[in-house]
């Protein structure tokens, strides 16, 4: 989808942090990506290689942690795990839910640098 743009803003933030901390090398970058965030980890990896070229993060390792999707059922007043992708049906009562509580994360979680 827009993985290059996302990765560009992630690496911009990483390089800002590296500068703030006086680091000269970034070793590892950890992203948290929700299952329904609409982002392909493979495309992210591809973008990562392109975007980090000739930067302090050129040799960094990219770690992508997936965040499972969870939705809320108003009728049951309980959360449930979403595994079927787009259609979120409550496993207890079968009602469809549009209330996604977790799974759309697009987050730069952690940077390891020296």
């Amino acid at each position: 989808m827009h993985e290059v743009g996302l990765m560009t803003s992630a690496i911009d933030a990483v390089l800002d942090q590296a500068r703030i901390h006086g680091a000269k090398r970034v070793h590892r970058i950890v992203l948290r990506i929700g299952a329904l965030a609409g982002v392909e980890p493979e495309s992210l990896r591809f973008a990562f290689e392109v975007v980090t070229r000739d930067t302090l993060a050129a040799d960094a390792e990219l770690q992508v942690d997936g965040v499972p999707a969870r939705a809320y059922c108003a009728a049951c007043a309980e959360e449930f795990g979403v595994d079927g992708g787009a259609i979120m049906a409550c496993p207890r009562c079968g009602q469809f839910s549009g209330d996604l509580r977790q799974g759309r994360e697009l987050e730069l979680f952690r940077i390891e640098m020296s």
Binding site: A10, A23, E107, R110, E112, S114
Partner: peptide
């Protein structure tokens, strides 16, 4: 424009772990 790449400042030998928890669409 993307922030300019500053030359590496004071070097530090200790590896650092920084939890930034920054949303990628932040801007």
């Amino acid at each position: 424009a993307p922030p300019a790449l500053a030359p590496a400042a004071a070097t530090s030998a200790t590896p650092r772990v920084v939890d930034v928890r920054l949303p990628l669409l932040a801007k």
